[in-house]
């Protein structure tokens, strides 16, 4: 069986690729820059003896799906799609340009959903895993477009779960807090960034389940508190 991972080159995507490869699954790894996914695919082939195919694809383009089809034809049947994809931008503030806003919404919401919609018919008996962000639980002073698109993705996955019940597809959605990625590396964080490898182990351990889950789990408590806060207090936190 195989998995398709979008955004596989670094961070959580790479950790997921190593976790699933160590369990013997074939992989199709998608990212924008083949220079990152090609070495990863080679590494997984050498290290774990699986079939791993690197694919450079811009999911905003319709023709990218041809490459995905070709890659999937070279590996064992598709078992699941993992979407640890997206990105933020330091200029993501209220008043950002339409172009930047479009880019953020595309990479965090539209592109993964478009790809997913195409692949869903092949996933009967399989699973779909999406990744949001705690940033999307309540409006913040910054990262407005990023947070809004992650929120949209979460809502889309809820709808997907309604639909997938009849299609025998497990739909999971994770809401991670700070992760030890390059994004968190340069920031002063309130909480310690979680290890992406541990997160990847959690994701694989949940295989077949349909649920929404925070990682690390204590973020559920923090988010619940934030949602309970009256606006007058919340706005003073300047989160």
């Amino acid at each position: 069986m195989s998995y398709l991972i979008v955004g596989a080159s670094t961070g959580l995507g790479r950790a997921l690729a190593e976790e699933y490869a160590s369990a013997g699954f074939d992989l199709v790894l998608i990212s924008r820059d083949r220079r990152d996914t090609e070495p990863l695919a080679a590494h997984l082939r050498i290290r774990f003896g699986i079939a791993a195919i690197a694919l450079a694809a811009d999911l905003a383009r319709d023709d990218c799906l041809t490459g995905v089809d070709d890659a999937l034809a070279q590996v064992s049947p598709l078992r699941g799609v993992l979407l640890p994809v997206g990105g933020s931008d330091p200029d993501d503030e209220i008043g950002l340009s339409g172009e930047l806003m479009g880019r953020l919404v595309n990479s965090n919401f539209l592109n993964p959903c478009r790809l997913l919609n195409v692949l869903l018919p092949r996933l009967r008996g399989g699973e779909v895993v999406g990744f949001g962000s705690v940033a999307g639980t309540r409006g913040r002073t910054r990262n407005a477009a990023y947070a809004a698109s992650k929120r949209a993705l979460m809502t889309y996955f809820e709808s997907l779960r309604h639909w997938a019940g009849g299609e025998e597809i497990a739909v999971r959605f994770y809401i991670p807090g700070y992760l030890d990625t390059n994004l968190a590396f340069s920031q002063d964080l309130l909480f310690r960034a979680a290890d992406t490898r541990r997160f990847a182990r959690r994701v694989r351990a949940d295989t077949g389940l349909t649920r929404t889950r925070y990682f690390p789990a204590y973020w559920r408590f923090i988010v619940s508190l934030l949602l309970l806060l009256p606006w007058k207090i919340y706005r003073r936190l300047k989160i």
Binding site: T10, G11, D33, R35, D36
Partner: peptide, 8 residues
């Protein structure tokens, strides 16, 4: 810095 992509 902790580069993790070739473009870094």
């Amino acid at each position: 810095q902790r580069p993790d992509r070739y473009r870094h």
